[in-house]
């Protein structure tokens, strides 16, 4: 059995070995970089590099579907969401050295050692006991194409496991939506229409926005108060921040606007025209 396995291993083509020696170190470099990078976004990018290398390795190993799905789903969607969150958190947030969960280092060490043991046993078994099957040419994957075979085994032999997994995923997605959903009404935000109705019901001070300053009516200064139709100053238009122009300074303009001044016309708002009249 072992000699057979080695026979198949020995037939690894040059292209395959070149691909391995390029992609393997790249994947390892990405993994190490992910751990040692100071910046969280750089860490995520190193992980992307590892995932891409793994995806290409799958393609080289005659599993094109798996390789491209790895790139689309993991690199394209999952890591992108990670990056999304990291970018929102901010680039200056660095690792915190304070241990928040008690005993997490101990637990992490034990679990890590356990995982390493599992991986080593699995690799050891695959090197000694499993017979590799050649996947070359048209006969790859047992006579049909890679995609057809995958589809057939997922939707016939492993249908129940597949359905269970999809149910689990849907549950997780719905759970995330339920937890993340905040009803607009419980948060106190109202629609535009509700706000309008509240205003007209008198739950706000006034139905309309505050009047702006009288900038364009008589001068170019925001300190000018707005005038009501009867010529009096609109008190809401006075700013709390800016010293308003004294009301008596505006008498002339007010007379001009109300029409009580001699010879004033509706368009005679410009002081220069008034001077022209007086001369």
């Amino acid at each position: 059995m072992i000699t057979l396995a080695q026979d198949v291993q020995n037939t690894m083509s040059t292209g395959e070995s070149i691909a391995f020696w390029v992609l393997g170190p790249l994947a390892l470099f990405g993994a190490l970089g992910m751990i040692f990078a100071r910046n969280a976004v750089h860490s995520a990018l190193f992980l992307v590099l590892t995932m891409l290398s793994l995806g290409v390795t799958y393609m080289v190993q005659q599993a094109p579907f798996l390789g491209f799905v790895q790139i689309i789903v993991y690199t394209g969607a999952v890591m992108m969401l990670f990056l999304f969150v990291l970018m929102l958190v901010g680039k200056d947030s660095s690792d915190s050295v304070v241990e928040v969960l008690r005993g997490q280092r101990l637990a992490a060490t034990i679990l890590g050692v356990g995982l390493a043991a599992l991986i080593v046993t699995a690799i050891a078994r695959s090197l000694t006991e499993v017979t590799p099957v050649g996947l070359q040419g048209v006969e790859a994957n047992g006579g049909h194409g890679n995609v057809e075979n995958l589809g057939r085994s997922i939707f016939t032999d492993w249908l129940f496991a597949f359905e269970l997994t999809s149910a689990l995923l849907i549950t997780a997605a719905v759970g995330a939506m339920v937890l993340g959903f905040v009803d607009r009404h419980t948060r106190g935000r109202k629609t535009q229409r509700e706000l309008v109705e509240m205003r007209f019901r008198g739950e706000h001070d006034r139905p309309s926005p505050l009047p702006g300053p009288g900038v364009f009516a008589t001068s170019t200064s925001v300190a000018t108060p707005a005038l009501l139709p009867d010529g009096s100053v609109a008190p809401e238009s006075l700013s709390r921040l800016i010293d308003s122009v004294g009301a008596e300074d505006l008498d002339e303009e007010r007379e001009a606007i109300t029409g009580s001044a001699h010879g004033a016309e509706a368009r005679a708002l410009n002081p220069s025209t008034r001077e022209g009249e007086s001369s």
């Binding site: 891409l52 094109p64 491209f68 790139i71 690199t75 394209g76 969607a77 890679n146 995609v147």
Partner: peptide, 16 residues
């Protein structure tokens, strides 16, 4: 055999 997925994969890497 998975040509369609190549285009999708390229699009999803391009967003990076």
């Amino acid at each position: 055999p998975v040509g369609v997925l190549v285009v999708l994969a390229c699009a999803s890497v391009g967003v990076y």
